[in-house]
Design a protein around this nucleic acid. Structure first.
Length: 312
DNA sequence: CCCCAGGCTTTTC
DNA sequence: GAAAAGCATGGG
């Protein structure tokens, strides 16, 4: 029932978890051929594993989707047309030779192009808490409100949950949802309100995909939503709207801007003004059009090499 | 006990 | 305006 397809890339690949969904699981870098990556893309359950530095094996129900279309979907999902080794400016290696060496093993990292609504809700759960709590929240949201798909693959039953629709979350009881949001009532209320705004068209992600919209304007539009600031707005732009120029600044980014690039601005508290100042600084030594992609490589490298976080 | 974790909102100076 | 407090929980 499941057929497998090989998706090839002209550059080496690895995936870092850019999402916290209950459907999507982490691949660390340099862990080929051992971890499955299961997801639901366009409503179709997929099982993916890396079989070499350059190839993914994708398993999907062929009755649901044909292989040619699947190949296109996967290419888009992993953004295989982006050559990761070119995201840093030419002179970067000369200015930061030690850092450049440290970064080498992270150039296989891929950013996934994810669903905007799922990305918005997931990052709304990611405020000032650890990764495991973030993943727990999103997993509970999908399990409580998502549609269950049970599928048999390689000898066992696997339950996957579609990420809940905007309408489903819009109609949720805040007291019930509260259990999914780390008991944070304000967060649950914000998620319900944001879901309602998406369901009723006041937030239109298809419109926001328009590349003509300047990043600064996109950031303003999204951050008008209660519970979304500049950082989450940039995350939505980078991870789901194809805006590789968006450069989300969180506590880790602030730390490496201080340590690796000597930013004194990074000593100040992360107010909106500080955020914009750091954003401008980062663009001065990164390629502005791909600042977010470069930033994500730096982010991952910082957490692994300096903070010594061994998992997510 | 402390501080920190993929922040944002509200309050206070 | 720019800091601090409050939100919530878990781990070091």
């Amino acid at each position: 029932m499941y057929n497998s397809f090989i998706i090839k890339s002209d550059t080496a690949l690895s995936v870092q978890n850019t999402i916290f969904s209950g459907q999507s699981f982490l691949w660390n870098t340099c862990q080929c051929n051992c971890v499955y990556f299961s997801s639901i893309i366009d409503g179709v359950p997929l099982f993916i594993r890396q079989i070499s530095d350059f190839e993914f094996e994708v398993n999907a129900d062929v009755k649901e989707i044909n292989s040619t279309l699947l190949s296109v979907v996967i290419r888009d999902y992993f953004m295989l047309d982006i050559a990761v080794e070119n995201v840093f400016p030419e002179e970067f290696s000369r200015f930061y030779p030690e850092l450049w060496q440290l970064l080498q093993k992270y150039f296989t990292l891929r950013i996934l192009k994810q669903d905007p609504f799922e990305t918005m809700i997931s990052f709304m759960c990611a405020q000032g808490i650890g990764m495991h709590l973030i993943r727990q929240q999103v997993a509970m949201l999908t399990k409580t409100y998502g549609e269950k798909t049970t599928t048999y693959f390689e000898g066992r039953n696997i339950d996957l949950y579609n990420f809940p629709t905007p309408l489903r979350l819009a109609e949720a009881d805040p007291f019930v949802m509260c259990r999914c949001t780390n008991n944070n009532r304000a967060r649950a209320a914000n998620i319900i309100l944001a879901s309602r705004n998406v369901a009723e068209g006041r937030i239109d992600f298809e419109h926001l995909r328009n590349r003509e919209i300047p990043l600064s304007e996109l950031r303003i539009i999204l951050s008008q939503q209660s519970g979304i600031g500049f950082k989450i707005a940039d995350c939505i732009a980078l991870f789901s709207l194809g805006r590789l120029d968006a450069f989300p600044i969180d506590t880790h980014v602030k730390q490496y801007l201080r340590k690796w690039f000597g930013s004194t601005t990074a000593l100040r508290s992360l107010s909106p003004a500080t955020y914009l100042a750091l954003d401008a600084e980062a663009r001065s030594f990164l390629n502005p059009e791909l600042a977010g992609y470069a930033g994500h490589i730096l982010f991952h490298c910082w957490r692994m090499e300096v903070k010594k976080m061994r998992s997510f």
